[in-house]
Nucleic acid binder design. Structure first.
Lengths: 168, 168
DNA sequence: TATTGTTATACTCTATAACTATA
DNA sequence: TATAGTTATAGAGTATAACAATA
């Protein structure tokens, strides 16, 4: 509870037309500027990073959600469809079309699990493994550009550590 | 260019069914785990923060975009509609419905600018100013909860400083 | 009866093109 | 001719309910 609210000094009323500065009659806020707000900055930074991702991966026709699914299957193949979806925060209903796309492109596949025939275990195809390999190289370029912006790997670790604290 | 790629040791092939651990035949990636990727962490943190925002502001029926518009008009009233939209990264076409909603609720208003009668200057109504006042109190609760999670105001400043570097 | 994957559907955000009125 | 605001529309992303197959 260490937040301070910013009280702005009141200025004179400005005449009609478009007021470029501050009009005291409309200044009742005790809010800091948007750029000092965590949620706002976080959103803008995330959009900037995704924009870079989209540019880098457009040639592979790969979106962030597809990237994360392939990365997760590569990390621990054979997991249930619903497990992968939940891990990524994607509703299982919405995961279906995503997985359909990867399967149609021949990158990943569903296999009927023998233990529980309701569930599908997810795997990469041989082509999917080659795809992930190329993906990794591109990801390196993307990530090192971000690290460069941040000012080095130590700064990246500091950022990840701070972001970790934002959960629950 | 200080990124290091992680080469994983290969393990033995596992039998059919659902593989819970790592299957070397499917492990061609040189990717770190998702939780070490900046973009992924950034997105998850942003979603967590927005979730808290939505909970806190549900009683005011206020979404993040509406919050930022009201905050910006309060900060510098009288600016052109397209200026506010661009500042927030919202396409001017999409801004129309947003502003319609705020106007319908009696919180903000468009005024024909005398200098250039094509443009609208944006202002808060008296009720809008009262609304922003209540909004500010709620925002304080939200923000201080985030700061508490981060570990204090110094940590917040560190985070904002790092996020600032992510732009171009 | 509960769970996994699926379909259908709706709502929000975002992006683009084209229109209007003014400049 | 160009710009501000607007409309219409289409595409993602996300949320919920209901169903079939299986447990």
């Amino acid at each position: 509870m260490t937040t301070r609210t910013v009280i702005r000094p009141l200025a004179g009323k400005s005449p009609g037309g478009i007021d470029r500065k501050r009009a005291s009659t409309e200044q009742s806020a005790t809010l800091p500027p948007l750029d000092k707000m965590i949620g706002y900055k976080l959103r803008r930074a995330q959009l900037a990073v995704f924009q870079d991702f989209l540019t880098v991966f457009s040639k592979m026709r790969l979106r962030p959600a597809e990237f994360s699914v392939l990365a997760l299957i590569a990390e621990t193949p054979g997991r249930k469809q619903s497990e992968i979806a939940e891990r990524l925060g994607i509703k299982r209903a919405n995961f279906v079309a995503l997985m359909d796309g990867l399967e149609r492109r021949g990158l990943a596949e569903r296999r009927k699990a023998e233990s529980d025939r309701r569930s599908h275990s997810l795997h990469l195809t041989p082509e999917g493994r080659r795809f992930v390999h190329k993906m990794s190289a591109l990801w390196g370029k993307h990530e090192s550009r971000l690290i460069e912006r941040l000012g080095g790997p130590e700064e990246k670790d500091r950022l990840l550590e701070l972001l970790d604290r934002m959960f629950d």
